[in-house]
Design a binder for these strands. Structure first.
Lengths: 224, 224, 224, 224
DNA sequence: ACAATCGGGACCTCCCGTTTCT
DNA sequence: AGAAACGGGAGGTCCCGATTGT
């Protein structure tokens, strides 16, 4: 029945017509970009729509309101992003310390591959998880719970890995692995924040490399 | 049109008496509080006015616009605050490493003394400098320059102190003092961010103490 | 939150039924009226809304901002209005001089038919095109270009007509038709301005008739 | 008593200190400029103050409110200005027609001598009297009465002159001198309005010269 | 005479969300 | 599923003027 309406200008229609999955993804991506640039509160639905060409009707069809859209960004974009960069490389690790050092050394490069957002280098926008955490955790429980859950996973992956390292006699047995994982995540977050605040790519890279190196040396001393 | 209302409540009058200095300070403080809770963009001038009882006319008289008010908050409140907590205690230092460790150990306590803001513990609102940096550095050059200047001073105080320690043979001579200062500031910032994101005082304290301890131990290894 | 109020006044509904075309026209008309009374700068969007019963959301939907609303008033209301009164009657002219004289003699009557605006006689508000030109031409290029385009058309219609009259040996061949058209439009504009400034209907009519008569006599002398 | 405060930075103080006449004049001139650029309603007291360096206290000391300031502009600046350009040259006239023609021919030059206002050529801002008349006559009786009084004087000077010309047998006896004076003033006003609307100095001059010439020729035909 | 402080309102912009229609 | 119309409200800016202080 629906497809009877044959009079479809092809490209136009092909793009615009009924592609719910793609539409939803497009909105999500645009929302993510807007939020990276202006924060959640500063993100404007109108600009998100302008980025996508989608209309307000479509947006509110897929997401009940701005808040849920924000939640979806965390769940479907930010969490996987954090996982890919920081957690996944740790899973098939043989030596946790060396893996962590390796992750640190390559993360800057891997993050640099992320596409620019609104003409700004992704690196200069800092860690999307931390950005949201700092802005929204005190204001909204939904965001707070989500970001804390992700941080919890992140720290747990590291502590699990360190624990395994202790079992394999690669890591000092006296080490409080959970506390250490927390420190590692904290320092990474701090480094990205310091990089972001410079708003200058060379300075940012300098900060990130400098801090990475310091952290890597710190890890070196945790060996058994 | 004249308001003959002779029945003057004293408090009313006491408040309304011309007191430009106090008015300006009150606006500034209210603005600071609002910004800590909602960020700069989310801060509402109306709410700032409501906090102070000052009217729009007065605010507009003392600060040209929201942006300049924000700048004043950085210059007149945040910078001294950072200075008092992190820089000033370093100045009469005898041994830089011990001073830094001492600062770390006492900073949580000192920051806890800060008055609550809108019913929220100041600690759970994180570092005001980092908050502003993360939100506004990419959006406004005025904020970017201000926060970067403060961070620069902060790092320089630490590196100066470490350099003096090298001269006194208290600190390893091979140490890159500037890079190390950067790492210290970065880690402190990261720790406060992680504490904030929990939005729970006990967890926050746990994070801060844990990270402080780690950083203190790291510093221990920098001794000559 | 739901407004269950079942007692629907019919009129309410009749008004509130979606009718974008009508809504847009209503806004435009109200804007025109406000602008005639208070000028463009003095026109208040709130008052325009009050005139129509339309809400801010609807207005913002149909017109991006006040400026574009103003432009639309020029393009869609003022230009046709000028055309109907001054240009259209010239098109099927047989003798340009007689046509112009005729237009002058009847224009006052035709303009008097325009509905009052905010309780004020339309005539006492002068020429809407000149009003806007005088206020906005120095302030905004968009308005300047629009009003100048209309004046250009107006003068061209007259000069075309005079030229045709020269071909038909009804108008002096030595006449500079463009210059003359300019003088005619200029004098008409001046007359309406003088009428408006009196803010008294009888005086205004006296001015308009007096000037019309003078101009008609002047035209008489342009005959071949 | 007052002059005891000897510690006066000379230039600074000399300028700022107590010169009521000069202050009042400065405010008036700045108000005139602002009103020429933005109209009376659009004129901002703040900008007027900025133009002069005077403070609000001084302004409201000399003028009760914005309206009275506007009235003063009309009475003390615009009226003399109109008088100088259009009326005064008529007084010692020997032949009214030739005088009027002469005034027309020289007025553009004389008006061009007026200083620029806010970077805009005075000519491109049109006739200040007509500007105010068109904007404010329908809105405020005070303005309406003032501008009408000036126009009345202007027309009367011309009609008096023409009447004298009739007595001297220089002007047609059948002429309705008052009506004619009205037409002359009206055409002058129209010409300046058309010049202004172009917002281009060459075009404006073309309009003014063209219309002047037409009006001069018209006057030629009024000779006895 | 002039300066600084303060009062509060009006304005346009912009925003998020609802409702109706295709 | 998507598009368009519409509802209100809040936000920052700016403004005129009143008040108080030299």
């Amino acid at each position: 029945m629906k497809k009877i309406c044959i009079l479809t200008g092809m490209e136009e229609k092909a793009k615009r017509k009924r592609n719910p999955k793609a539409t939803k993804k497009a909105i999500l991506k645009a929302a993510f970009d807007e939020m990276r640039l202006h924060g959640f509160q500063g993100a404007s639905l109108s600009k998100i729509l302008a980025r996508t060409g989608v209309t307000k009707g479509a947006l509110f069809h897929h997401y009940d309101n701005k808040l849920n859209l924000g939640y979806a960004v965390v769940d479907q974009l930010i969490e996987p992003l954090i996982y890919d960069i920081w957690m996944q490389p740790l899973e098939q690790s043989i030596n946790p310390i060396e893996s962590l050092q390796n992750i640190l050394r390559t993360s800057v490069q891997r993050m640099s591959n992320h596409a620019d957002i609104g003409g700004a280098k992704s690196l200069l926008l800092g860690c999307p998880l931390n950005q949201l955490a700092q802005e929204m955790a005190p204001l909204d429980k939904g965001f707070k719970d989500r970001v804390n859950r992700i941080y919890y996973h992140w720290q747990r992956e590291i502590s699990k890995s360190l624990l395994q390292g202790q079992r394999n006699q690669q890591v000092q047995l006296t080490l409080d692995v959970e506390n250490t994982a927390m420190f590692i995540v904290s320092s990474i977050s701090g480094a990205m924040a310091m990089g972001k605040r410079t708003q200058s790519l060379p300075q940012c890279l300098e900060v990130l490399h400098g801090c990475s190196e310091h952290l890597a040396q710190y890890l070196e001393q945790l060996r058994a």
